[in-house]
Design a protein around this nucleic acid. Structure first.
Lengths: 127, 127
DNA sequence: CAGGCCATGTCAGGTTTCCTTACATAAGCC
DNA sequence: GGCTTATGTAAGGAAACCTGACATGGCCTG
């Protein structure tokens, strides 16, 4: 499984994203309204943000600081978009969750104690 | 900032952790009660789990599958604990949040467009 | 300068998610 | 059979989130 699938996994409620980005909930929702981010939703309709979403919000904030308006930011981000989109197989979120759950069913140390080398670990360490 | 600080950052509510681990909320709280995990709490007393917590829960699940009981799991995990605990400077969660927020205020590409190399990126990629 | 627009703040009313506590139960063990 | 252990489930309440509406300060622009 590539890193992208994990980066796109819906993980954070808006409250955490506020702390990660320094943006207010109002700002985040406003940016979504203007299609600068597209967080997933829980069954109960609550926003769930991925790492990609958070990164994007950090970029939005930077571009706004530079004096761009909503449309300007959107255009800037759209450009980048073209340099990506070269993904391989798509996975559903549930498949990624499942994969992570099985992360520790993999190789162990001689002592039999896991060494934390499950798939989850690759969230922050490129093995 | 080392990776550990990010791994310990309180990020996930229990609902997400359920999906990441395949455990029920009841199980997760029960394990906490038996001191197998120690999630942080929000101001409103809601549990907030870090990557370390999630990894730990995945381990707990594995060990339980192997037939250990609460005490057994705790003992096993305690052993590993001794191999760690060689950390350097401690940072408060708020400091880590702040650092992440400034992630995109760093170097840019010649085009002026960020290349996503902020600190957040190191959650899953060891630069 | 008056009038607009844009980005954000704030409040209200309602829903979802989470909290603790308590009771129920299946499985394993003496 | 009668414990203990791990888990399910329900109740009542609190926290966090949702949408929609209105308010406002800063900036243009005529």
């Amino acid at each position: 499984m590539d890193v992208d699938a994990r980066k796109r996994l819906p993980l954070f409620p808006i409250g955490i994203v506020q702390r990660l980005t320094g943006l207010s909930a109002r700002q985040i929702r406003y940016y979504e309204q203007h299609e600068l981010v597209h967080p997933a939703r829980s069954e109960g309709n609550q926003r769930l943000f991925s790492f990609v979403d958070v990164e994007r919000l950090l970029e939005v904030r930077t571009l706004l600081d530079e004096g761009l308006n909503m449309a300007g930011v959107k255009a800037r981000l759209a450009k980048r978009q073209n340099r990506r989109r070269s993904d391989s197989a798509e996975l559903t979120d549930e498949q990624v969750y499942q994969h992570i759950r099985q992360g520790l069913l993999e190789p162990r140390t001689p002592s039999g104690v896991s060494e934390f080398q499950g798939d989850l670990f690759r969230f922050y360490r490129k093995h």
